[in-house]
Design a protein around this nucleic acid. Sequence first.
DNA 1: GAGCACTGC
Length: 674
Amino acid sequence: MAEEEEGLGSALIAELYRPPALLPIAQLKDALLYAIETFPVTVIVGETGSGKTTQIPQFLYKAGWTNDGSQIAVTQPRRIAATSVSARVAEELGCQLGQEVGYSIRFEDVTSDKTKIKFLTDGLLLREMLVDPLLKRYSVIMVDEAHERSLSSDILLSLLKKVLRARSDLRVVISSATLDAEKFLEFFAPDEDQNVGGKFKADYGTIVSIEGRTHSVDIFYLPSPINNYVEKAVDTAMSIHTSEADGDILIFATGREEIDDIIDMIADRIVDLGPDAKRLQPLPLYAGLPTEQQMYVFQKADEGTRKLIVSTNIAEASVTIDGIIYVIDTGYVKLRAYDPALGIERLNVVPVSKASATQRAGRAGRTRPGKCYRLYTESAFDRLEDATFPEIQRSNLAPVVLQLMNLGIQNIVRFDFLDSPPSKLVVRALDLLFSLGAVDAYGRLTKPLGTRMAELPLEPMLARAVLNAQSFNCLSEMLTIAAMMTLQGNAFVAHDGNQKLVDRARRKFAVKEGDHITLYNVYQSFTNSAVGKQSSQWCRDNNLNYKAMLKAVSVRKQLRNYLDRMGIQENTLAGSDAIRVGGMEMAERVQRCLTTGFFAQAARMKTDGSFVPVGGDTVMWAHPSSLFFHRKVDWVIYHEIQETKGKIYIRDLTSVEMDWLTEYAPEYYKVKQR
DNA sequence: GAGCACTGC
């Protein structure tokens, strides 16, 4: 396992560790088992630290829920949680991980025929439903952290509702940290029960509440609203540092730039404190930070030094840091929104929800009683949304729709969602899938193209291009490019914050055709036994993210296996072709092949360097990480479009010929011209 | 001209 995950994992295990007998959940054991025995659906409400994730599966196991040879599944929204929690439970049961207790995540299946309790990501359980739609191997399925309302856990709950209709023996346990419990339970009401109106006849399920074991956290609000929460966060941190007892500080900010600003301002203020003052060590934390730098936040500060961690939302649920006593909540978060009319993703800074604010405050009370300073007024808090908008209502739904169709859901519009996505999102998704040939004019999944696209763990446009690659004799190249695309711009990394070095490193691999083939060259060099040798040192020397590169190797291998099973062979010509891919022939094949997937994302550069889409007037700019940030080009296809601070950026560009667009997507462009 | 919140298959 890579360093980062080990580090984060052990932090998580530390959080979970508490002698099991002392957990409040132990007292509720009988009530819990009774509920699960009696009702198809049990919703468990319990704060972090209540032990529900580690204890409930053990109760069920010991109560005989796996005696008939079936398994207990516990789903997690994150890989790291699945691995670390399973290790903890294996230890408590005194067995080796992978025996009675195991986990299964993408690329790693640590289970055996002896496995009774299996932790897995919710996305992977969805994949299992393709093979086993009724999930027959499980007697109990526990969906943990359902309150996070992730895309895959939402869909999983919808599908479990369907499965329950066919399987009266199945038990579903939903665990939530917030007050959504009733909503979850009511969702599982059989249709006839919903007609009873106000009368609530819940013989299909029940709610069990578990006391948390976190310490109390005093909440402080501002007396009046402020304009600049960045400055206020700095002021608050400094006053905590100079007047409050020992204990580390955690500031929640919205993004990298803001975090850097806060850290710079804090650094200035530290100088003013004078040489005799207690020391303060500001540390940034966000997902894009190189692993080594992320690890600093977990290390104990020197004696007499107070850590001040300035973090994105990553510290809200994904990462747990010990020793935080003070939390400063700016009250904002950066969230994705999807504009179905333009097909653009936006990252907006928006107020947090009450659930989020509560979760943030709780980060101060893990070791001992703490304090949380909310940089907004109490009435502002009262006006916050109860919970963050579910992901399914603010995402590009093309991958979701494709996956649901492949699971046999014919009518997406009538699908029983916990919260239905806006119909515009569904329509947009269907339009795109139709233009890609995954869905026919009757709204049915096509065979084999549509089903194959759904099977590949790639977004639809990329899946389409990969499935076309064999006919362009560039499957080998496209597999590599697809694998590199899943890194989402994280192939290069600034090891010491020096962005100039990154740009220089990128130029070493650059080819005139654009970013995709540039990334292909990166992969080729990394895996070449005479060049990168898959070594971490080589990555460091070339400003590449070693962990990300290893992931690309895994993804490529997995994609390769999928295509093997589909009977699509890697072109022998491609594998042995000695032509440098930046040269004419191969490059053009790749460019054409990419066009067959990304024709709907084509644009042309104007003289001022901006881009406009076909038949549109949206002004777009090449992202600074693109080869075409500096260079001139005519037509391009792009992989991603995103609005940041009012400016629309396109990322991962490859130059194409205008004729190819009409050649490979005649229908699409005929409609466009009307 | 100047920059990805966070996950997952």
